[in-house]
Simulated scan of single mutants.
Amino acid sequence: MEQVTIRIAEQRDVENLKKLMHEYIVNFYQSPVPAAGKLDWLIGTLLKGDRGLQFVAENEGELVGFATLYFTFSTTRVANITVMNDLYVLAEGRGKGIAEQLFQTCLAFTKEQGYASMLWETANDNYRAQRFYEKMGATPGDWISYSL
Score class of each variant (00 low, 15 high):
91 A>M: 01
95 G>Y: 08
53 L>R: 15
36 A>M: 11
54 Q>R: 12
26 V>Q: 09
28 F>M: 13
42 L>I: 09
76 T>E: 14
52 G>A: 08
104 Q>A: 12
113 Q>W: 08
65 G>W: 07
101 Q>M: 13
98 I>P: 01
106 C>R: 02
42 L>C: 02
98 I>M: 02
98 I>Q: 04
35 A>I: 05
103 F>W: 12
91 A>H: 07
41 W>C: 05
53 L>A: 04
105 T>I: 00
60 E>D: 09
106 C>P: 04
44 G>P: 04
105 T>R: 11
108 A>M: 01
79 A>M: 00
31 S>N: 14
40 D>Q: 11
72 T>L: 09
59 N>F: 12
99 A>K: 02
66 F>H: 14
61 G>V: 07
46 L>D: 06
48 K>E: 15
69 L>M: 06
110 T>G: 04
80 N>T: 04
50 D>T: 15
66 F>P: 03
80 N>Y: 03
52 G>M: 06
83 V>F: 13
101 Q>N: 07
73 F>N: 03
103 F>N: 09
52 G>H: 10
111 K>Q: 13
110 T>Y: 05
26 V>N: 10
45 T>L: 15
62 E>Q: 14
46 L>S: 03
40 D>T: 11
110 T>V: 05
103 F>C: 06
106 C>N: 09
61 G>L: 10
82 T>A: 13
70 Y>V: 04
66 F>C: 11
96 K>D: 01
111 K>V: 12
99 A>V: 00
80 N>V: 00
49 G>R: 11
65 G>S: 10
58 E>M: 07
70 Y>G: 05
73 F>C: 00
70 Y>W: 10
59 N>E: 14
96 K>W: 00
56 V>Q: 03
80 N>A: 12
27 N>G: 02
39 L>T: 02
48 K>M: 06
50 D>S: 14
83 V>N: 07
39 L>A: 10
35 A>P: 15
90 L>R: 14
61 G>N: 08
97 G>A: 03
34 P>G: 12
107 L>H: 10
109 F>V: 02
108 A>Q: 14
71 F>C: 04
31 S>R: 09
82 T>W: 07
71 F>W: 03
90 L>Y: 00
54 Q>V: 14
63 L>G: 08
81 I>S: 07
76 T>Y: 06
55 F>D: 06
58 E>D: 10
32 P>H: 09
37 G>N: 07
58 E>H: 08
78 V>T: 10
84 M>A: 06
36 A>V: 14
72 T>N: 11
97 G>F: 03
109 F>M: 01
77 R>W: 00
